[in-house]
Amino acid sequence: MSQMRRGALEYCVLALLARREYYGFELVQELSRVDALLTSEGTIYPLLSRLRREGLVETEWRTSPAGPPRKYYRLTPAGRAALAAFRQQWIAFRQAVDGLLDSLEGETK
């Protein structure tokens, strides 16, 4: 289960960034709204670091009204493509699992 969550989490991050640019704390707040997706908030930062290294997101430093400058994350074309591929596979996968679970549920009733 935790592997599935970890795998899905990175595409949820990409999906959020497809909407607009976020800085770290904002992303965490958004993801925290989804139950059980982000169990430890700090784990998002190694993930973001890797997404950047893979070229799926890029970062930009911007001054903030108060406090230190913030690192904003933005989706790259490669990130957009990866998200599109995931979305397709995820839908097919979800339908397959749902179909199986539904048919088995009908059998046992």
């Binding site: 795998g7 493509a81 990866a82």
Partner: peptide
Amino acid sequence: SFTAAGPSPRHV
């Protein structure tokens, strides 16, 4: 080894 994290290819 990051493939372990994702269930699907991320580059198209």
